[in-house]
């Protein structure tokens, strides 16, 4: 295992564990009676942290979509189809996105939407490129 990877994982793992555990040690239960438990931090730092997770997922989504639109490995197979590689990968990605959106709206379930979205993409890829499984 690479040392750098090992150290990054350990630092993040220990930090995340402390985020989860330490509040149980330090007066976590001594808040005013009748007060709703806070589920979000307050103030500018709280607003930043509340948005940073959803922002990271949005950035990762755009990165992953760009990756699917420019796939070096699939490009050779895609040129075999009747469409050019660019329109073929855009069409298959659009179908995959539409299927994921549709399943999520229907089931409200991340795992089902992910798996059926990927399956729909595979099917679309097969139809567009004509490469058999």
């Amino acid at each position: 295992m690479r040392t750098e990877l090992l150290l990054v994982c350990l630092a993040v793992g220990v930090g995340t564990y402390l985020f989860r555990y330490l509040p149980t040690r330090f007066g976590a239960t001594q808040r005013g009676a009748g007060e709703e438990p806070a589920t979000e931090l307050r103030g500018p730092l709280g607003a930043f942290l509340a948005s940073v997770g959803v922002a990271a997922v949005a950035a990762l989504l755009v990165a992953a979509l760009v990756g699917v639109l420019e796939p070096p490995a699939a490009a050779a197979a895609l040129t075999a189809g009747p469409l050019g590689p660019r329109s073929a990968s855009a069409l298959t990605a659009a179908l995959g996105v539409a299927a994921t959106l549709g399943v999520y709206r229907w089931r409200r379930d991340v795992a089902a939407a992910t798996l059926l979205g990927a399956a729909a993409y595979g099917l679309a890829w097969w139809l567009v490129t004509g490469v058999a499984a």
Binding site: G53, V54, V57, A58, L60, L61, A64, L65, G67, V68, P71, A74, A77, T92, A93, G96, V97, T100, L101, Y104, R108, V110, A113, T114, L115, G117, A118, A119, Y121, G122, L123, W125, W126, V131, A132, A133
Partner: peptide
């Protein structure tokens, strides 16, 4: 050796991030 399955696996991440975003949004 199964390019269609490989292609579907390649779309797991966009599908996952899209679903996670919908769930958090």
């Amino acid at each position: 050796r199964f390019p269609v399955v490989d292609a579907a696996l390649g779309f797991l991440l966009p599908a996952l991030f899209l679903s996670l975003l919908l769930a958090m949004y």
